Amino acid sequence: MRVYIGCGGYSNDDWTAPGLIYEGVRKDDYLATYAQHFDAAELNSSFYAIPGLKAFAGMARRSGGRVRFTVKLHRVFTHDRAPTDADFDRMLQSPEPLREAGVMGPYLAQFPFSFHRTPANRRYLGQLTERFAGHELAVEMRHEGWDLPEVREGMAERGLIWVSPDYPPAGGLPEPQLHVTGDVGYLRLHGRNAGSWWEGQSAAERHDYRYSRAEMDEWAQKIALAAPDLSELYVLFENTTKGHALHNIPQLREALNAHGVPVQTPDPGPEQGRLL
């Protein structure tokens, strides 16, 4: 199993704080710097506006082919749920430079908590699946009503990747387990800040959480158990606030290696130093 580890987004301005990886780095050089430390990135900006071909080509170039990109679907597909043919065309065609460079990972459909398991929503998911046929599509369900074995069996039959999330114990959310619906796995670590998950005014507040070493070891154990069933696993840390993810990723790498899951750690070079 090849494990790709990275963060939700790479344009994190709070990583310019002293001692973090963007200290003294120009914004235009963020991605090149990021690529020296991580081999995966979740593109969140596409949720708000789908980048064009040139933008994706620039990502492939600046990352030097060292980063696998997962691309979040625009909100019109998951929140508004009224995509046009033009939306599908742009979402499917724009990342072509990533495919050509061999660095395209799955698409990510992040549905909101309000997307309950109803007949209408199940039909919509089926229609979305058909339009993305031939592409890897990872689906994150935030309402616990989807967290059922029969749902994952149906996703496996349709070639969908179940996104295994680590949420706070805030009620109504899927359990923090690693489930496999194909040979590619997808794990999103949101942090466990239960106090701000529902009341937080921003994503930064909701993800303001630093995992302990014990919690990273817990996930390493789960990954080791699932390893025989997977060829690839994407692990994306969403707790980028205040650089929490920068502390947790080395801990997870160490824990995975200790549990017999080899992890490729990018070599930043002598001038860049360690991640922290």
Score class of each variant (00 low, 15 high):
A170Q: 01
E157T: 07
S11F: 14
V184R: 15
G105W: 06
F237H: 14
R81M: 14
M1F: 05
N12E: 12
P168V: 10
Q110Y: 04
I50L: 10
L275G: 08
A227S: 14
V67P: 02
P228L: 10
A120F: 13
M59L: 15
P106I: 12
F56Y: 13
R123N: 08
L73R: 08
P106Y: 10
A120D: 13
F111Y: 10
R2P: 00
A109Y: 04
G243L: 08
V71E: 00
Y234N: 03
L108E: 02
H179K: 10
R131K: 15
V163T: 15
P83T: 07
R206C: 02
Y186D: 01
L160I: 11
V139K: 01
S164Q: 06
A170P: 04
M141A: 07
L189M: 10
G154P: 00
Y124F: 13
H135G: 02
E144L: 15
D267I: 04
D28W: 15
E130M: 15
E205Y: 06
Y211K: 01
G191A: 12
D147C: 11
N121M: 05
R61H: 12
R117S: 13
D14R: 08
Y30K: 04
H74S: 08
H190C: 03
A60T: 07
R99I: 05
S212V: 03
G269C: 10
R213E: 09
L108W: 03
Y186C: 05
A57F: 03
N12I: 12
M216L: 15
R61Y: 13
M91R: 09
R206Y: 05
R210P: 00
G64D: 03
S212L: 09
D147M: 07
R99W: 15
L233P: 00
G8S: 13
P176D: 03
P149C: 08
A55T: 14
K72R: 14
P95H: 05
L256A: 11
D39G: 11
M1E: 01
S164G: 12
L160M: 10
R66D: 00
E205S: 09
A224L: 09
M1K: 05
F38E: 00
Q251E: 11
H143R: 09
V180W: 04
